[in-house]
């Protein structure tokens, strides 16, 4: 096995309940370094819950999750360690509205990584150039379009220099004409070798860069495989039906 095939996320038989509702029913997944994983499925299938257990925004109640060699348990130090190595981009952007774009990006590097302000700002500017909006650095999130806000959110996560990036439906809250600008940034990121887990229904993105795809339904992984396998000959009827529904438009 070569260096790039090293496992970075290992999820084994994870269960999650909300009260009586069984949201995740024994989910297992191994992700290798530099892999791009696309997770899709109907709403309520547990795909968002699953991706949020990986940085412990949701607590799993049974099973085992190991991220970059650290097991997620009730130990707060482990959780903080994992969160430092894991970036997350949300459907609703969740930028901090009282801070400028620059402050949004530099806050965590300065407070958590303890970088000097100047270094944090230099790296923030590089990232803003990478996502194509360096001229917006000193505006507030409320002054930007949805697409620009989501690109800032990506830059904010990257500023912590994470080993893994999680995307929770990053384009679902965007107007159609802005989806492309965000996907372009994500495609560039995928090609640069970032390990990515992406919950999305953007099948064009999946075709372009995904290494493997996972179809979730009713809290379980129904089917997984390369985009080739999933699109050409899905083994499960449910996968085929769902794909036909979202691809028919």
């Amino acid at each position: 096995m070569n260096q790039s095939a090293e496992t970075i996320i290992s999820v084994q038989n994870v269960h999650k309940w909300y009260g009586d509702y069984h949201a995740l029913k024994g989910v297992s997944m191994e992700v290798k370094k530099r892999e791009v994983i696309v997770i899709f499925g109907p709403s309520g299938s547990g795909k968002s819950t699953f991706i949020r257990t990986i940085n412990r925004l949701e607590e799993h109640q049974r099973g085992k999750i190991v991220v970059d060699g650290i097991e997620l348990s009730h130990d707060i130090r482990n959780i903080e360690q994992v969160r430092m190595e894991t970036g997350m981009v949300f459907q609703q952007f969740n930028l901090f509205p009282h801070l400028t774009v620059m402050q949004n990006i530099t806050l965590a590097p300065i407070q958590v990584r303890k970088w000097p302000k100047q270094k944090a700002e230099e790296i923030a500017m590089q990232l803003l150039e990478r996502v194509g909006i360096p001229e917006q650095a000193h505006k507030y999130p409320g002054q930007l379009s949805g697409g620009q806000q989501q690109r800032v959110a990506i830059a904010r996560s990257l500023a912590m220099q994470p080993k893994i990036m999680l995307f929770d439906e990053p384009t679902s809250a965007l107007d159609p004409e802005m989806i492309k600008e965000v996907l372009d940034v994500m495609i560039e990121l995928a090609k640069s070798g970032m390990t990515m887990l992406v919950v999305t229904h953007e099948m064009g993105f999946a075709r372009a860069v995904a290494d493997r795809m996972f179809f979730f339904d009713q809290g379980q992984i129904v089917e997984s495989g390369t985009p080739e396998d999933i699109f050409r000959n899905p083994k499960e009827e449910r996968t085929e039906l769902f794909l036909s529904q979202i691809l028919s438009h």
Partner: peptide, 25 residues
């Protein structure tokens, strides 16, 4: 809730989240 989640996801601890993100707003 998204403000707490975004702050936590960036690695800020509970005190930092309160001081820098939640209380100012």
């Amino acid at each position: 809730r998204g403000q707490f989640e975004a702050a936590h996801a960036l690695g800020l601890n509970s005190a930092q989240t309160m001081v820098f993100i939640i209380l100012p707003q």
